[in-house]
Amino acid sequence: MIKAVCSLVVSIAAAAAFLVFYWNDMGTASLGVSLALAVAGAGAGLVFWAHDLMRDEEISEDRGSLASTEEEIETFLESFTTGEKKIARRKVLGWMIGSAAGLLGLGSISLIRSLGRSPLPVLFQTVWRPGTRLVTPDGNPVPATIEQGTMMTVFPEGNVNATASQTILIRVDESKLRLPPGRSNWAPGGFLAFSKICTHAGCPVAQFEKTVNILLCPCHQSAFDVLRGAAVVGGPAGRPLPQLPLYVDSDGFLRARGDFSQHPGPEFWNRS
């Protein structure tokens, strides 16, 4: 009895406190603690009440059988088949209602088409074009004077919200470059640009370890060797980060020679 009474006293006091705290806008902790004591006090009161004060007798009862008797099943099956025969007699009508329902079903499933546009060619498109100037997220063009070891995020000029085109710009020592064949003029002055979207699961590849020239994806720890055209050197990614070919224009700003070497982002079935 005493336990139940104490619990309920706590509950009543805490419920009153909750009201006071709420109306005086007292903050999360006081609301939480007072509500916790109010409801848990009531809960404990009920449990003590049931446990200590009501006589709990253990009952043993026959479970009975879940399954029906054979006779009940037979009667059911008989009623069902009698009805079924009346339906089955008109086979043509059955086929017709079935076809209508099937077509309507197809129709309603087709509605999911409204939810998305065609993925192709969107998945291949970026807004990088030959001659597009690289700009910072604030829209400022990037001069070819930034220092070695720098990493920054750049976008195509006029499209700083084009997330599929987001690009990492890194400057490395030009003499150390070992880019794949055919990319000899893609990195003037040691400027390298790669798609920032990880080819594994689409996270922004945001970490650059400049002492070893490795780009690291913070989500699943894929590692890309910047000097070798962002080739995969660790982790689960399946292909290099696509590279954006660059040149320096007559005003000394960086521009793209064209689009990425491959489509950016995670891999998919219809990629070729």
């Binding site: 109010a38 848990a40 809960g43 009161g45 009920l46 449990v47 009440w49």
Partner: peptide
């Protein structure tokens, strides 16, 4: 009672 305890 258990509901109130969990809620608490």
């Amino acid at each position: 009672g258990l509901f109130f305890l969990v809620f608490g």
